[in-house]
Amino acid sequence: MGRTLPQLDWVGPTNYVARDFAGKQAVSLDRGRNSRVVERTVEVKQGKIPVLVGLRPVNDEEFERRRRRLDEALAERRPQRQADEQQGRKGSAAGYAVALRLSSEFIAGILVGTGIGWLIDRLAGTSPWGLIIFFLLGFCAGVLNVLRSAGLVAEPGTKSADGEGSSGKHE
């Protein structure tokens, strides 16, 4: 280990390196001692001007692994960003949007419930019981809608573990 190897962030398929790195050894920083030979370089041109010299993506598996690593790294930062967005959204226009959203959810519940009740009455001749019962059920559905919309009750179809993530983005 007498000589110093050129250092790269990561010797991988998408790392762009200087032209004369081809066929030489390089050290990747994130794996510490792991040194690899730069496999083959490729020139990328736009028009006639070479803009980038780098490694052709040779290994799909390697690429996929890198992508997952990046996703994980991004996922760590994501909740923070969401919290920031929610903070910023608490302006006056946001309050008005929330009011509109919650009221429309509630009214929609009652309207649909009453509509179903009215239809059942018409078809089965049970007037007025269908209307009464489904109006009340519609009321419940409206309340449920509002609670879901406000993120106080988990969405259907989401597990409780990731329910928080989706309800926070519900606007």
Binding site: L100, E105, L111, G113, L137, G138, C140, N145, R148
Partner: peptide
């Protein structure tokens, strides 16, 4: 039966609140 009825109604309200939200805004 009660919960399922409420969930079904809640599901049927989706197109209403979905459309009214955009329209009203």
């Amino acid at each position: 039966p009660l919960v399922v009825a409420i969930e079904v109604i809640s599901f049927l309200t989706r197109p209403i609140s979905h459309s009214v939200r955009l329209f009203a805004n």
